[in-house]
Design a protein around this nucleic acid. Structure first.
Lengths: 355, 355
DNA sequence: AATCGCAATGTAACTAGTTACAAAGAGTCT
DNA sequence: AGACTCTTTGTAACTAGTTACATTGCGATT
């Protein structure tokens, strides 16, 4: 009854007479104030500083809030606070365990810091990345987290235009224009190679995925090529995913001078390699050693356990979240940060059979 | 020079004299209007309907926009349009390929519809889900997508309070309070069981993950238990992930009356089972058949290829995105929608050895 | 020449909150 | 009793855009 009167009262507002009223109107702070017979300031206080309002008034206001099913407009709050409390992450894909783990850790840390996470996938396309980045900023992202080194220049323009905090991850490069938080991909690849050469391998097949739009793979390959004096390396490219690993491994096995070990640039590829070796009837590590990179959650459970280089992906997600949050909060650009990787030797690597 | 004058002019605004000026001020639409010597309406038109502004004026305004590095405030736009153009998805974890694939498909479709995706993880905890849901709505999510059946009642309150569109996924249930878009988990489990019994298996080990907070697993187990007349079923629970699959499989193998087939409630668990069987020196499918559920991207590449029940996860993500978008747009609640699954027979299943 | 129509632009009122400041009232101290 | 403080509340001006409506001025009809 009372509500009906109030709503009728409210209809003197101009817009109520326009066609704009397609959906039934949501109660505003002014409606609540009217219903509770207090001023808007009092209602605002009930919401933001209940202690400063007398219990009797507070109760009346709370009653009105419930009656009218009032909810604050996020936009109106944001316009006053200047904060949207959301940041965005741009990743090539979610279909890779490594990015999913990264985002998961990031989201958790952001949640602790009172921020929410917008996620967009780019498919590794710098143009799409730029378009989505603009879109995310236009709906209110206060900062961005991107993956990899190579980005369109539009991203720098965006950062410049907005004074927008952007943190780059998955690699470490103190010379990059934006702060980088990640690991040294070249060192990661060398760690894997060192492990194999230390075991005595001299003919090593490097199994990797696509290069386009994937600078991590490129950096790893560069490092390996620079170390090619240490062993005879053959390179085998495959598609994304386990299937690519299978096919590239098949190519390596067909080599006249077959390698004694396979250095896979990711654990997913290594899984494909292991499947392919099993199909070929070759024992691991007896006939062929296999090493991966990533140390995914299943790697320790495979038969045999997959030797891998563990990457600090979760830590990277959490650190990137913290760095971005502090940048937004303090307006102080965070430093670059390098995270260390770790060789995890397991059953899939051993000395070459001839030794 | 000119800019300096304008900024000095602007300082007559009250807040410029307060301490609030910690960060250097961003140009507003009014600053641009002043710089270009036009009205705010004209600037707004240059941004929203450039064709209605004369080229000469437009150019002057665009110049001012560039000079002042002006960017529209997302909050101010949102307050007028009533739209934030963001929706949120709540998933138990990102560490499962199945959720990552789901979210990826959803994000892609949302992008096509001009919406962005907020992602939050709940760890399967209904309380955390509720807290995060409120948080997401408070920063402006226009709709929610949740996974699974069992949610805290707070979620219904939220939906009621805001008239907030919430779509539930990963299961289909026409009786649920919110629209569901998903597959019939009971039928999925029966499809897997049917395949094994049709091959002649009568002793089947069911390998599954944790039950708490996972209604999909529960529904599948219920269906299997209801069909226990068709075969002698033993149930083996393991932790999340490949490791859990390994341990549960080890338990199944230790049974005095060992099963001839393993029905794994996910492909990840099946991978653990395959590893464990390999460790035990048992051949697939010669000594033991293995079937999974999900049909992950690697399943066709394993050795042997993993028979699995393919779930329409990508389709589900895209459909959920479309349904939520249309709900927001039209204010019309979408219908429940069931998506069909499909048995994908591959090398890992065959008749039991005794037959 | 007067009127019409249209394009281009400006004024001011909206969107839904927050908050500085003012004011009123009650209780306490001198 | 008067001055003081403290709590509680209200008024109105902010936040940064959008937009309905009014106005101006020009060229084309009649």
């Amino acid at each position: 009854m009372i509500d009906a009167v109030r709503l009728a009262d409210a209809s003197k507002r101009a817009w109520c007479l326009t066609q704009k009223v397609t959906r039934k109107r949501r109660a505003t702070l002014r409606d609540v104030a009217q219903a509770a017979e207090v001023s808007v300031a009092t209602v605002s206080r009930v919401l933001n500083a209940p202690a400063t309002v007398s219990p009797i008034t507070r109760e009346r206001v709370e009653g009105a809030i419930d009656n009218l099913r009032f909810m604050r407009s996020p936009a109106a709050r944001a316009i006053n606070s200047g904060r949207t409390r959301a940041v965005a992450a741009l990743v090539p894909t979610l279909d890779h365990a490594i990015f999913a783990r990264f985002l998961g850790a990031m989201e958790t840390r952001l949640g602790e810091l009172g921020l929410s996470l917008l996620v967009a996938t780019t498919g590794g396309d710098p143009d799409l990345e730029e378009r989505k980045a603009w879109g995310l900023v236009e709906i209110g992202a206060e900062g961005l987290i991107v993956s990899g080194v190579s980005h369109s220049t539009g991203l720098d323009r965006l950062a410049d235009r907005h004074d927008l905090p952007i943190v780059a991850t998955s690699f470490f490069d103190p010379d990059a224009t934006m702060p980088t938080i990640g690991y040294d991909n070249r060192a990661v690849a060398r760690t894997a190679l060192d492990h194999l050469t230390a075991l005595g391998h001299r003919r090593i097949g490097v199994i990797h995925g696509p290069l386009e739009g994937n600078d991590r793979t490129q950096a790893r390959l560069d490092a390996l090529k620079a170390s090619s004096d240490r062993a005879q390396l053959s390179f085998h490219a495959g598609d994304l995913g386990v299937g690519g690993g299978c096919r590239a491994t098949a190519a390596a096995l067909a080599l006249p001078d077959r390698p004694t070990a396979l250095l896979c640039l990711s654990d997913v590829i290594a899984l494909g390699a292991m499947f392919e070796l099993q199909r070929a009837g070759l024992g691991i590590p007896g006939d062929m050693s296999v090493i991966g990179i990533d140390d995914l959650s299943w790697s320790k459970h495979s038969a045999p356990g997959l030797t891998s280089v563990s990457l600090p992906v979760s830590e990277m997600g959490a650190e990137a979240a913290a760095a971005l949050a502090s940048w937004i909060e303090t307006q102080e650009r965070p430093d670059h940060r390098i995270l260390s990787h770790l060789l995890v030797p397991r059953g899939s690597t051993g000395p070459p059979s001839g030794v």
